[in-house]
Write a protein that binds this DNA or RNA. Structure first.
Length: 291
DNA sequence: CGGCATACCTGCAAGC
DNA sequence: TGCTTGCAGGTATGCC
């Protein structure tokens, strides 16, 4: 479910709830998600205070007051939910009952407010781990990540040097987290459509020194930045108060140009959108607009 | 090494 | 209606 814009939206929802809370109870309800929980996982979190909620690529980073960082990756179906209730009462689930697949629950308080912060993940491709802040950058899952698509590094020049000599199609290269970290299947499809570039184009074609390639690379960088910014803006508009209750795509899913729109008309030219499979993943594109 | 298929797991929609 | 099938937004692994 979540690509970078969804993770950023969840981060913005969690930040005002979590910052400063005292974690008074932690409940780990499975022995594993994608990875096994290490022994003592809950005990290392219990009693801590949350300093900040940040993000690197699709990873949520919850910094604790003893130097540990709770790292959360949502996989395909993970989400965080916050329930608030009045201090002094015990928590009660709404009448609809306890949701399935709540795997990790923290109870936390700040002032007179009590929060229950729950990680839910039906497919269990996500994971939670603890890492010391000083070792985060060298963590095997983090250290190979490429640049942030919202950061200053992303430019036509960057793409030209990153794609030089790469034989992989643009679709695969953009999904490669070691180059740009945080793009997933949806936003790669959308960015390529905005840039008017075929997902099958060899990446190296963008790296040639001629003006045409330079323009295409720069257009692609702008398209990536734009599609991510638009999706975050749409996700942000989905925030209610301080709580983002799930990892839904917000309103941006209503403005996909090609993703999930096989046989529907291209918004630009009306040609039916094509679906193909590349490296085992669906690719949606317009064969008329994307060359 | 790069690039691709596969595995992990559950839920859901489409098709019969 | 109820079953089967295929597909899903991510990442690590192993194979060529």
């Amino acid at each position: 479910m979540p690509e970078l814009p969804e993770v950023e939206t969840i981060r913005r929802g969690l930040e005002p709830v979590l910052e400063g809370v005292h974690i008074c109870d932690v409940d780990v309800r499975r022995k594993d998600l994608r990875f096994p929980f290490p022994p003592g996982f809950a005990a290392k979190i219990k009693g801590r205070r949350v300093l900040s909620v940040s993000r690197r690529a699709k990873y949520l980073l919850i910094a604790l007051d003893d130097g540990q960082v709770l790292v959360s990756h949502l996989g395909m179906s993970g989400s965080w939910r916050v329930d608030e209730w009045a201090s002094g009462n015990s928590f009660e689930y709404p009448r609809s009952g306890k949701p399935a697949h709540d795997h990790f629950v923290m109870q936390a308080g700040r002032g007179g407010n009590m929060f229950r912060i729950t990680y839910n993940d039906p497919r269990r491709f996500g994971f939670l781990l603890l890492c010391h802040a000083s070792e985060l950058e060298s963590h095997p899952l983090i250290c190979k990540l490429g640049i942030e698509p919202m950061g200053n590094m992303l430019s036509g020049d960057f793409l030209q040097s990153a794609f030089a000599n790469k034989s992989a199609p643009l679709k695969s290269a953009l999904l490669d987290q070691r180059i740009i970290a945080g793009l997933g299947n949806i936003y790669v499809c959308e960015a390529l459509w905005r840039a008017g570039l075929s997902p099958m184009r060899k990446s190296a074609m963008l790296a040639s020194p001629d003006m045409q390639a330079k323009i295409a690379a720069s257009k692609l960088a702008d398209a990536i930045r734009g599609v991510i910014a638009d999706a975050i803006a749409a996700g942000g508009s989905h925030l209610r108060d301080y709580v983002q209750t799930d990892g839904a795509l917000g309103y941006f899913q209503h403005s996909f140009s090609v993703y999930g729109r096989e046989k529907l008309p291209c918004p630009q030219c009306g040609t039916p959108v094509k679906r193909i499979v590349q490296a085992g993943r669906s690719t949606f594109y317009c064969e008329n607009c994307q060359m």
